[in-house]
Design a protein around this nucleic acid. Structure first.
Length: 544
DNA sequence: CTAGGGTTAG
């Protein structure tokens, strides 16, 4: 029986147990037999019963039971144990309060947290590290960072856990610069710098995309000789990637003495995000040669690289690997596999994977709907969207709507497109989603030469994201398609003026089992001169 | 029997 199933057990105050008491006493005669990590459904129920029968269970036994409920993701159960403990006159100790505070935090009960705070003071546990941290966390998360920070400033003792909690709370409120400032304060005050606080600080630098702060955190890590700690080095690696410094990231990765599957996954992901799919695939192969076994996460991160090169052979190979190793049941892997097939031109394979899936989430549906639209099967995509809407377990989000709109554009279903577009106007839709949707609508405008609508859409696009170079590329294409060359040229000048750079465009060809990649204006290929000459000849022939 | 921590898919 698995541990989690005990979350469905009867509530503590009314245990419904039909096992004879003598057996209970044999198995749990002494309260120290209560072990949170190994306890299962029946045993937990038994424990309740036994604690009811013991004249006065010791605090250790109550603590264990509270712990068990918490680790079984049942904070409500933990709280009712605590309540019962109080009713029976048991005295909580310094290990009881942190756990009960955690339970009330998960339940979102700040009022109870305040009561427990009072109790901590009354019982003299206020200078306990664990109590302080738990209090900072419940105040910080339920009443805002300032409340947590106040407590932190007032608290008689501070260890690195409490400091880290403050950093974490700032990050939760999306204030990474304040988190980094706290980290610098720590360093200045000679507080103990450990791996966890370094990981948290590195995360803050990544969120800020600040190379400057990143260097300083890196320096501190080196000073405390924690740079080679695998968790620290992985977070430093991630920081370089998040700061969009792939060269630095690669250099750091290369000199890492130990690399685990997470290190490899991070760097592969970094290259995928940057569009360097061949480098991502190379590294995936290298990882295997280094004897690191791919896991569902690394598989899911390399599959997009296969999807976006003609190397769908690699994709099939990786699909085969996941089948042989029994990780094809992972939902994320299945979604990534479907997307790989759909984007490699094998939408039928994608559909096969889709139909075999036991569980489907909104991403599964979106991938499939988008897959159909990419293959000019917009009608089927819209059908799938309707099919999805019948499934109560999934709800369309911004990406699903973008996909279905794309279907409408490829199927020339302008009216339906408008209909879905109107469905999107819910409060939880972000600007980003709107961007994509508008972009999709725009494709429709091109097809129908509905120039006025197109112009309106552009105006909205620029309002939303005036600095996004991609929008200018779209508009430039729009002008060119409408043979407004002078406007297109003028726009190009504007783009240069804003200083925003469009993403580099890539193309590729598979030749003799090797994938050759070409970027715009790329002259890195050893035979690039010959390639361009040949290209010019071809262009001439095309024009004739 | 105790707190704060690194990777993934549209």
């Amino acid at each position: 029986m698995d541990v989690l199933s005990s979350t469905r057990m009867p509530s503590f105050l009314k245990p419904e147990i039909s096992i004879c008491t003598s057996q209970c006493k044999r198995s749990l005669g002494r309260s120290s037999h209560v072990r949170g990590s190994t306890i299962c459904h029946g045993e937990l129920a038994l424990t309740h019963k036994v604690l009811d029968e013991i004249p006065l269970p010791d605090t250790f036994a109550w603590n264990s039971l509270i712990h068990t409920h918490l680790s079984n993701r049942d904070p409500g159960g933990a709280l009712s144990i605590y309540h019962h403990m109080m009713m029976r006159g048991a005295r909580p100790d310094c290990r009881t309060l942190p756990r009960v505070l955690t339970a009330s935090r998960i339940c979102g009960d700040l009022f109870l947290g305040k009561q427990l705070h009072g109790q901590a003071i009354k019982l003299g546990f206020f200078d306990e590290h664990y109590v302080i941290t738990a209090l900072i966390e419940i105040y910080g998360r339920l009443d805002g960072i300032e409340a947590g920070k106040w407590l932190f400033d007032k608290s008689p003792r501070r260890n690195s856990v409490a400091w880290t909690m403050i950093l974490k709370l700032y990050l939760l409120e999306n204030k990474p610069e304040l988190a980094i400032n706290v980290f610098y304060q720590m360093v200045e005050l000679n507080a103990l710098i450990d791996s966890v606080v370094l990981i948290t600080a590195a995360g803050a630098c990544g969120l800020l995309k600040s190379v400057e702060h990143g260097r300083r955190v890196h320096h501190v890590a080196r000073k405390f000789q924690l740079e080679s700690d695998i968790l620290v080095s992985n977070s430093l690696l991630k920081m370089h990637i998040d700061c969009e410094r792939m060269e630095d990231a690669r250099e750091f990765f290369n000199q890492m003495t130990t690399k685990d599957v997470i290190s490899w996954t991070e760097i592969i992901c970094g290259y995928v995000k940057k569009g360097e799919f061949n480098e991502a695939l190379k590294l995936f192969r290298k990882m295997n040669m280094d004897g690191i076994k791919p896991d569902p996460l690394s598989i899911s991160s390399v599959l997009p690289a296969c999807a976006r090169t003609v190397a769908h052979k690699n994709g099939k190979e990786i699909h085969g690997y996941s089948l042989r190793n029994g990780i094809d049941n992972d939902l994320v892997v299945q979604n990534a596999t479907m997307d790989m097939y759909a984007k490699s031109g094998l939408v039928d394979y994608a559909l096969k994977v889709f139909e075999r899936m036991k569980k489907r989430d909104v991403i599964s549906w979106t991938v499939m709907i988008l897959g159909f639209s990419l293959h000019g099967k917009g009608e089927i995509g819209v059908e799938f969207f309707c099919r999805m809407e019948k499934d109560q377990r999934v709800e369309a989000d911004q990406f699903t709507y973008a996909a279905v709109l794309h279907c409408c554009t490829t199927a020339c279903k302008v009216e339906e497109g408008k209909f879905y577009f109107n469905c999107i106007k819910k409060p939880n839709i972000t600007h980003y989603a709107l961007m994509r949707v508008l972009g999709a609508l725009l494709d429709g405008c091109w097809m129908h030469h509905r120039r006025n609508i197109g112009k309106q859409v552009f105006e909205q696009l620029f309002d939303l994201e005036p600095r996004d170079a991609e929008n200018y590329v779209l508009l430039s294409k729009w002008y060119s398609d409408n043979e407004k060359w002078d406007l297109a040229d003028k726009l190009r000048e504007t783009i240069m003026g804003t200083g925003s750079k469009p993403k580099k465009a890539y193309s590729w060809i598979e030749f003799q089992n090797k994938v050759h990649v070409f970027g715009t204006g790329d002259i890195s290929h050893p035979r690039s001169e010959g390639i361009y000459t040949e290209l010019q000849c071809l262009m001439k022939k095309v024009k004739c």
